[in-house]
Design a protein around this nucleic acid. Structure first.
Length: 728
DNA sequence: AGCACGCCGACT
DNA sequence: GTCGGCGTGCTC
């Protein structure tokens, strides 16, 4: 037998595999999970490749870990993610290598009658033997309960040989979803869409073995309330009928029990939910089930993308446009894009669902890489809310107020009719700025120079960038004047105060991400609101997403202009999506809805498109504007190359490198005059970007490239907007 | 990730 | 004179 060398990838920030000798008698293959010595310790790694050779003076592999090997598709995904994000391979492996923890084994212990009665009989023992009569297998706990004794008695009988133990197969972590459980009642549009999706699933399943064309990526572009979920459930049903697994990816906040219940209503049982709040024990069981193929459907947040599916037949990316899909620390990747890669590697169609698809997805549809299935109408004959603007220059609120009289009147009418109103303001806290009337000083964060936001409920000034918190001072820190500090501008807390003054009878609730009591309480509050336990919701963007409020007929957008001037290249797109989502909250129940949008610039393209409903035109214009501005085309990694933390040096470097005619592959060099420089306007964000770059290892990549290209090295720093669009 | 080596501030 | 900060580098 030829001696062989194992190339082992270790889930650390290492970009190479390490070579190990394979001891005699150990038969290893690519994908095997092994323990290897690394420095002074032993590490778990994955055999990435086997190659012939004599181990020589290499350290030997310590041994194989008894877990299923990593499948080729998942290994290829790891390779791809590393290459695409310029992350070290080992870091990418870290996303995919999940070993069941050392939680106690999940097999329950069963006992049954197997021997003669014990020499010492007691009443308790007698009851146990009676209960166990018939030879049935019971779990320890059940039998103890049945006989009304403690489990200690059972243990005693096991020791005496009267009972024997045997391993019971654990109850499955989830029951099998039944594709025939409840056939949905679909509209003709929905049915046609569902058939298209199901056909794609079936075709991909039939062709997976051959050298078929890659499975399709299909955008389900449906207005809010059009029943996208019900439609893609039919694709899930098809995957189930074919015996394949399905993965539904969604932003963490959307993984509510409401969603899981909707799934259960269609398939009879909840899917396996995979997110950060799932306990380790349950995670282990889901992991094993996914690997064995017994868990058929996983609904999960982005980390679920790397689960070791045995036969993945469908990937759904719900709310495809969501920013939460971007992983920004560690390996920086976009879950949607990597889901597309995984779909291709697994021969599984990928469905992207959104009411407000991202620009890159639209472009990909336009280029013919993705297919598109449209659901242009709300389900059940419901109409989309009417959207009108309130020009704040013509109908301003009274002094010191933020609600236009027009909006206030509508809110009042809504509440009087027993319906719900949502006031949307994407700003947490009471006031975004605190100003000293005496000297003009603005309270700002000592760490990052952003303004401190007053949180009146908490009686604190908070930096929304770094989290710095301080007490609201009595006197101005600059001039010492007492009582001169005035809040400027509104946050949701301040709006709540205004609502309390204007409509004191109405039940109101403020919902923002800093809701006291954390995510759990927030979820219960959201459900309470959905049941109608509030008249007026004052909320930040978290109310724009996911949740369904059937009684909500009015949405008031308080400051539609927020975010339009942020300097972020995606500002317009994001604002448009956010406003479309939030106005779409209105009229999802029996009664039609309307939305009023307060703005100082009703003629702004974003606002105009929102009101006219001409989303397509807006996206086309936005795409063209980006191209004209030299912003990265979709399919590239954009990099802004700067040096050090000093702005002037950064710009000089940027200028120099912008003249380089051949940027390294995959990297687009942008000059300092171009828009992304706005990203480094504040020190804080700049640091973040530098951090991001260190993590994607772009710096090392560029350094190597500079050396090869014979360019001066300098101290190269790189800032990137990691937004790699699919280049498939 | 750990754990080493290595070069500059406050202390027995 | 040392202890200790964390910056850079290495692990087959």
């Amino acid at each position: 037998m030829t001696a062989r060398i194992a190339e082992v990838l270790i889930p650390l920030a290492l970009d190479q595999t390490y070579s190990y000798a394979v001891p005699a008698g150990l038969d290893l293959a690519a994908g095997d999970v092994v323990a290897v010595p690394l420095g002074p310790r032993s590490r778990i790694g994955v055999v990435w490749e086997m190659r012939p050779g004599s181990g020589g003076n290499l350290k030997p592999v310590e041994g194989r870990i008894d877990v299923p090997p990593m499948r080729p598709a998942l290994r290829k995904l790891v390779d791809f993610v590393a290459r695409y994000t310029l992350a070290p391979k080992g870091s990418a492996l870290g996303l995919a290598l999940r070993l069941p923890g050392d939680a106690p084994d999940v097999t329950r212990v069963g006992v049954r009658l197997a021997g003669p009665p014990p020499e010492r009989m007691t009443p308790a023992r007698h009851r146990v033997i009676e209960a166990a009569a018939g030879g049935l297998v019971h779990t320890k706990r059940d039998l103890a309960k049945l006989a009304d004794v403690s489990t200690g008695v059972i243990d005693g009988l096991v020791d005496a040989g009267t009972l024997e133990t045997l391993a019971l197969t654990a109850a499955p972590v989830v029951e099998d979803p039944d594709p025939a459980f409840a056939r949905p009642d679909l509209s003709p549009d929905q049915r046609a869409a569902a058939q298209t999706l199901a056909a794609a699933v079936a075709t991909a399943a039939a062709e997976r073995a051959g050298t078929a064309p890659p499975p399709p990526v299909i955008l389900i572009d449906g207005v809010t309330g059009s029943g996208k979920t019900e439609v893609y459930f039919e694709a899930v049903a098809e995957a189930l009928r074919l015996g394949r697994q399905a993965l539904i990816l969604m932003p963490e906040i959307a993984l509510t029990s409401a969603f899981l219940e909707r799934f259960a209503a269609r398939f009879g049982v909840r899917p396996a939910a995979w997110h950060s709040a799932v306990g380790t024990r349950r995670r282990d069981r889901i992991l094993t089930g996914v690997e064995a193929g017994s868990v058929k459907v996983v609904a999960g947040a982005r980390s679920a993308l790397f689960l070791p599916f045995r036969d993945l037949g469908l990937v759904v990316v719900d709310e495809e446009h969501e920013q939460a899909y971007k992983q920004e620390d560690g390996v920086c990747y976009h879950t949607r894009d990597m889901a597309i890669v995984r779909g291709r590697l697994e021969a599984a169609p990928v469905l992207l669902a959104s009411a407000t698809p991202s620009i890159e997805t639209r472009v990909n549809v336009g280029w013919g890489r993705f297919r598109r299935v449209a659901l242009p109408e709300r389900f059940g004959g419901r109409s989309l809310p009417s959207i009108t603007t309130i020009d704040m220059r013509r109908d301003p609120p009274s002094q010191g107020r933020f609600l236009s009289p027009l909006l206030l009147r509508e809110v009042e009418r809504t509440v009087a009719a027993g319906e719900q109103a949502l006031l949307f303001l994407n700003r947490r806290g009471f006031a975004p700025l605190t100003l000293c009337r005496a000297c003009g000083h603005r309270t700002s964060c000592p760490n990052c120079s952003a303004w401190l936001v007053e949180h009146r409920f908490r009686r604190a000034l908070v930096c929304h960038h770094c989290g710095h918190t301080e007490r609201v001072p009595e006197a101005c820190v600059a001039c010492g004047s007492v009582g001169s500090l005035v809040p400027c501008g509104p946050g949701v807390e301040r709006i709540a105060e205004e609502v309390a003054q204007c409509l004191p009878e109405a039940r109101r609730i403020v919902l923002s991400s800093d809701f006291p009591g954390g995510t759990e309480r927030l979820r219960t509050e959201l459900e309470a609101v959905a049941k109608g336990e509030a008249d007026i919701v004052i909320g930040t963007q978290l109310v724009a997403k996911g949740h369904n409020f059937p009684g909500m007929t009015l949405v008031g957008v308080l400051d539609a202009d927020i975010g339009l001037t942020s300097g972020d290249p995606r500002a317009s797109e994001r604002t448009f999506q956010l406003l479309q989502q939030v106005t779409g909250r209105a009229g999802r129940g029996a009664k039609p809805g309307r939305a009023l949008v307060q703005t100082y610039q009703p003629e702004h393209p974003v606002i105009a498109a929102l009101v006219s409903g001409e989303a397509e035109r807006f996206y086309a214009e936005e795409t063209a504007a980006r191209e004209a501005a030299g912003l990265p085309p979709f399919g590239r990694l954009a990099a802004l190359i700067v040096s050090g933390e000093d702005r002037a040096a950064a710009e000089a470097h940027g200028r120099a490198l912008a003249q380089v005619s051949e940027p390294p592959p995959g990297v687009m060099v942008l000059g300092p005059a171009e828009a992304p420089l706005a990203l480094i306007r504040s020190r804080y964000r700049f640091r973040l970007l530098v951090k991001a770059v260190r993590e994607v290892n772009l710096q090392a990549y560029l350094r190597a490239w500079l050396a090869r290209a014979g360019k001066p090295r300098g101290s190269v720093r790189v800032a990137v907007d990691i937004d790699p669009m699919s280049f498939l």
